[in-house]
Structure formats: C-alpha cells, structure tokens
C-alpha cells in the first residue's frame, strides 16, 4: 500500500468517531496494539528529544524499504507513534521523504502538530524523515 492509501484509510477510520473521546480511545487502542520493541533497542540514542514522554524510534533497511519500530512510556503518545509507524513503515526512503503529513490535521489531531506541544509529534516525523535520508544515501552508494 502506498503512503497516500494508508493515510486515506486512517482518515476514513477516524471519520467514524463522533467525539474526541472515541477518537482518543481508538488512539489508546492503537497504542496498546503497537508491536513491542526489543528492550535492547530502547537506548538513550534512540530517544527522540523534545517529548515530555519518552519516545524510542528504531529503523532498519530491508529490501530497499525502511522498517520502523517504536515505543513510548505514555499511551496516547504511543498511539500517535503507532499511527506514524503504520503510515511510514515498509516504504521506500523516497516515498517517506516525499510524503506530506496533512492527514494528521484531517483526522483531527492537529493540536498535536504544534511544535510547542510537548509530545514531540513534529520531532518524530522529523526523525523518521532523517532516517529516510540516511538510507537513501546508503542505497545510492
């Protein structure tokens, strides 16, 4: 599935909810269902700075696709992480770099996009794109 298709899927899913509470309950569910990250990968260098809660992001390149795994100690943040992993994992570095993130606004989580927001959604996206740049360079050389 392309990034665009996954994003549209998410927009449809979130459109079903009538209020913020259902939306957050769903995010909490997504957070709980996020595959566990290897404890050995939860190291200081995998931590994303700028989050009030801790977020660990790990990536690897397999068959030209970037695979992301992640975790957080706060469940709502983990839900956001789960959404990002679903959108960006198993995509080529080019596709990740070309993707826009306006879907976050469309699913009604715009408040989490503000750079001053302590959950660091912006920092997470930035780190995912930086990883993609690194793999892109690796593939070219």
């Amino acid at each position: 599935m392309t990034i665009k298709t996954i994003q549209e899927e998410l927009i449809d899913e979130f459109a079903m909810f009538e209020d913020w509470m259902q939306k957050y309950e769903y995010m909490i569910e997504l957070g709980k269902s996020l595959p566990l990250i290897e404890p050995s990968l939860k190291t200081e260098d995998k931590l994303i700075k700028g989050c009030q809660s801790k977020v660990w992001l790990h990536s690897e390149l397999k068959d030209g696709k970037v695979r992301f795994t992640a975790d957080s100690d706060a469940i709502i943040t983990k839900g956001i992480v789960a959404i990002l992993v679903r959108v960006f994992s198993n995509q080529s570095p080019e596709a990740i770099l070309a993707a826009d993130t306006s879907f976050i606004d469309e699913i009604g989580l715009k408040e989490h996009l503000s750079p001053t927001r302590a959950n660091g959604l912006v920092s997470m996206i930035k780190q995912m794109k930086l990883d993609a740049i690194a793999y892109q360079t690796q593939l070219k050389t």
């Binding site: 957050y24 809660s53 469940i75 709502i76 943040t77 302590a118």
Partner: peptide, 21 residues
Amino acid sequence: GIHPYDIGTIVDKLGIAVRTG
C-alpha cells in the same frame, strides 16, 4: 501505571488546565 502526560492530555480535553511533567 499511567503516565502523567496522558492524564494531562485527557483532562485538558475536559476543560481543565493542570501542569504535567
């Protein structure tokens, strides 16, 4: 078992301003 950030986020949705962190 609950992160303070999660509590702060939910209570904000209910119009309550507290500090977390």
